[in-house]
Design a protein around this nucleic acid. Sequence first.
DNA 1: CTCAGTGCAAACCGTTTGCAAACGT
DNA 2: ACGTTTGCAAACGGTTTGCACTGAG
Lengths: 150, 150
Amino acid sequence: MPKLSENSINKLKNNLKEKGYKLTPQRRAVLDTIIENEGNHLTAEELYDAVKVVCPEIGLATVYRTVLLLEELKVLCKLDLSDGCSRYELIHEEENHQHHHLVCTNCGKVIEVEGDLLETLESTIEEKYKFLIKNHSVKFFGLCSDCNKK
Amino acid sequence: MPKLSENSINKLKNNLKEKGYKLTPQRRAVLDTIIENEGNHLTAEELYDAVKVVCPEIGLATVYRTVLLLEELKVLCKLDLSDGCSRYELIHEEENHQHHHLVCTNCGKVIEVEGDLLETLESTIEEKYKFLIKNHSVKFFGLCSDCNKK
DNA sequence: CTCAGTGCAAACCGTTTGCAAACGT
DNA sequence: ACGTTTGCAAACGGTTTGCACTGAG
């Protein structure tokens, strides 16, 4: 945890400095909390509650503003799981596109699918529709292994 | 146009009757408008404006309620193009899943991709994650052929 | 005649914004 | 000191809901 977090904080610091932004305790706290909760797909509200533990004076608006900033800096990306609120997850520099998500419609579990496995489909589409694909959003809805057993 | 619309209206009538619902002029008008605008991906607000031409007393709330009902009846499905509002499109009975959409991030054009071409990926996922896929939401963001030329 | 359906306005809820005060550099 | 960033509260925009009235079956 400390290694990953330190790396990210340093990268963030440089990113911010480059654009004339400041590294405030609030921004640090938001990033730390997201790192600690990797894989949890926190909403802004959940993130706010978690950040408040460490930084009680923070306002919800600051969380929204920070998350927006981190999105611009390509540190985070917004995730829509079709439940009416946005969630945020870390971007891993190895991945060129967003990965896919499996959403269990019974228990709500969200499983991440590594790799994107869409190269073939994407090149078919680029060819056929002359459409240059920059990113995608791919979600599968259904039953996870636990819910399917019963 | 009349053939398709009449078929749909009759089907709807039966669907409604089965569940004890009524076929009101408002519901007729909403369905008619959606049929007339196939491929246009209307938002609730746009649908409301279009329906008002034919049925001026209708309220926006009724449009929302109707669209919800038609979704339950599997006549429509809700579409999220990541622009902050829901859109609605007719379900064609031939298709087992929702088709895909290409969204141009420059001009906003939305292109529909026929066929789903995801069978391979889906069976890989079902195998690997023991996840039973019921539906998917697949969007590609990028530049359409017009915007890519310039 | 009855109860489902309607129109209206108010409530909702996640998110954004305006502003004066506070703080990082 | 300067200008960015913050917290607060109010505004926003799409959607939902409560209620008395209306109209389809």
